[in-house]
Design a protein around this nucleic acid. Structure first.
Lengths: 236, 236, 236, 236
DNA sequence: AATGAATGAGCGTTCATTCAT
DNA sequence: GATGAATGAACGCTCATTCAT
């Protein structure tokens, strides 16, 4: 794909520079990058707060101190803007997951961290919930188009697998752990608490956002899953 | 009047059929209850498919073979209609939960059923996911107004507790089970699989809707949670 | 029409019961008069408060503790209902004018009363202003259809003329008084103060509804017009 | 491009005419000021013809050869548009009043002009009547919000006062003239004739719009009020 | 690239009115 | 005659999007 090569070259050429050189075909001139990013940032906030349908182009452009028409100039449509926001959110969470500082010599401690990570991440970035929720409402039509989607989860799975392997080698973890199921359980237990905090708070008549309750949940789910991969049951 | 006789005959002839005889003016319920329910049913479908903001009053009224204005006649506003739909969905799921046929003498089997229930229910009624998702997007502003919200979950918790108690009495369950945490884990593991099936399918490059995978998940989560309350680890 | 005959029989059978027998031409049964008048009264109030376009059929029917459809049953349309309200208002004001207790022997006092009457009447019944205003907004399309319109003002003009004549005979009034112009001036000076009380209060920065100001205006306009027909100027 | 040349010719040919040359895309102002004024002008016309409630946004936007949405773009709401129309009307009438060419040396002639002015103005601009009528129907809720309302009438009152003062100095006017009452009488007698021309024509069975009758009224009211401030009664 | 006016479809809602029992 | 459900046009307003400078 020609166009892509050019893009790539341009990107490579710009390494080390603050701002890439402008070109005839408006390959984004000087301030463009800033404007684009302002819009993207504003869009992420507005989409997260209101959902796709509830978000207003005007709100986004004003939040970015820019103009409606620039959104179309840079992104083409509301939907395409949303896709970029979505992909940014994906990238962020998976990157954060890969950068977890894990104790190489203590698989149990490392696994506990891995388990708690999604919960703590969603807790800190509840906006992502809305973006993912919107995407699922629309049957994942954007993510399914993306050819790189399955590359996001892979690294995390690899890390999880390597921690499990270390535990097995050390004789503390069972040999038959299904990493994919485990990964999914980890995500479920972290995601749901945040995504349904409002309805569940009402149903259970409990404030799920109370710090102690949050810590209790983090401990509960990590113990639950840790136990499930341990060779021997912890005495409690 | 001839026409009327014919109509009458047609009506008599059509007893037991879905659609009554056509008339010049399209047959209308002329019955508040029927019309209300038609609208409610149509609304549930449309809200579930499109979300609150994406749902169009016109779509709902047409799906109900009714009129926009009747929605306002019966429900007052789009939001109030949504609230009724939402409460109907709550009632349905909690009612279904209470009617689970549980083996009184086998707490482990009973608990497995309880654990799998939300997952299977959401799998069968994925529309509820959208309704709950919308509600959480709007920070639960409707459910928090409802005075009866916390009465929905209570019965389910009671049932869960009684099953746990029986298991404890039989000596198969641990004494320190936290039913609320357990209930939340049950719901999380059932809900997330369905709610995020589209994005997760893409991330994991797996078809989460494949029957075998569904069964595997049901088995995985029930075993996981069952194990977590068992006194002794199952040998594997 | 067969069906109707059957209905009729049923009705005939019920004679002597709570519900009176209907007639072929519905010559309004017992309660009809009350309902009609309730509606009329409610309509006058609502039309007066909101204007024609601002008035809602539903508001009227509810204020009359009746039903929208009964308005159509009794009056045919919103417009026809308005016309009846309008004509009632005309009748009222002209009747009140004719029943003024005038001192037969004191033309000056009598004239002063006549002059002040419209002002005081509109002050007491500002709703009439709105009805007349609406009618004029619509270029008097209802009143112009009414064949009896010119019979409303006539009696008042006659009374005015007779008072003037008495004053002329007594030698206190000028002989060249134009009763029509005078009548129009009387009405103008009484009507405007009430009709434009809100805007004029704002323009003049005065509260036109203050009792003293009202009395001052009544005195001012009566003196003004009385003087204009007097043979000799009053010393002031 | 041929078409364009032709267009140009057409434009040149049409100089001085109402409509500029047509183009493929209908010629649009693309100038906020022009569009705003077009809308304002159209709104004034439609509001005047139909009243506030009777006026339709669509009618206004079409009359302005514009779009509904531009009304909201420029004015925010129907009500705010109405307020601007209203204030424009106020400004116009009070400006016209201030620009009356009055004979400085003939207070009586000057006063006669002042008296006749509102009548003649309303006669020429009956739309203002509807605007003021609407405002009064709504209890002056717009004008009362305007902080500048009382500055409209003030100049006119000042002019009136100065003319009266000159007359007093010349010895032709009485010293105890109440300018506010007089101003109100002037306005009443001018306004009512126009505002109630339709109903009064019907009541009196006279055509109030007949030129002679109009002149007669102008003469009648100016004589009436002039006489009321004169020191000595005119001989008739 | 930035600025802001123009475009037009469509949305939630209201309302006068009619129909059926 | 009373009751209330049904009908359908239209209204004020919003929004994503495009165009012109």
């Amino acid at each position: 794909m020609k166009a892509k090569d050019i893009d790539l070259n341009a990107v490579v050429a710009s390494i080390g520079k603050e701002e890439p050189a402008p070109r005839k075909r408006p390959f984004k001139a000087r301030c463009a990058k800033t404007t684009r990013q302002n819009i993207l940032k504003a869009a992420r906030e507005v989409f997260s707060r209101k959902g796709y349908e509830g978000a207003r182009i005007e709100k986004i452009s004003k939040a970015a101190k820019s103009y409606d028409s620039l959104i179309y100039y840079y992104f083409g449509s509301k939907e395409k803007l949303f896709v970029e926001v979505l992909e940014g959110a994906y990238r962020d969470i998976f990157e954060a997951g890969q950068n977890l500082p894990l104790d190489e010599n203590d698989p149990e401690a490392a696994l506990r961290q891995i388990i708690e990570f999604p919960f703590r991440y969603y807790m800190a970035h509840p906006e992502v919930i809305v973006l993912l929720g919107t995407e699922n409402l629309h049957a994942g039509k954007h993510i399914s188009k993306s050819s790189t989607a399955d590359q996001y989860a892979l690294p995390m799975l690899t890390i999880l697998q390597s921690v499990i392997d270390k535990g097995i080698k050390k004789g503390v973890f069972r040999k038959d752990v299904d990493c994919e199921q485990l990964y999914m359980a980890i995500t479920s237990l972290g995601y749901f608490y945040v995504s349904n905090r409002h309805t569940f708070s009402a149903f259970m008549n409990r404030d799920l956002l109370h710090p102690e309750r949050i810590e209790a949940w983090a401990h509960y789910i990590s113990t639950l899953l840790l136990d499930s991969v341990r060779k021997h049951k912890t005495t409690t």
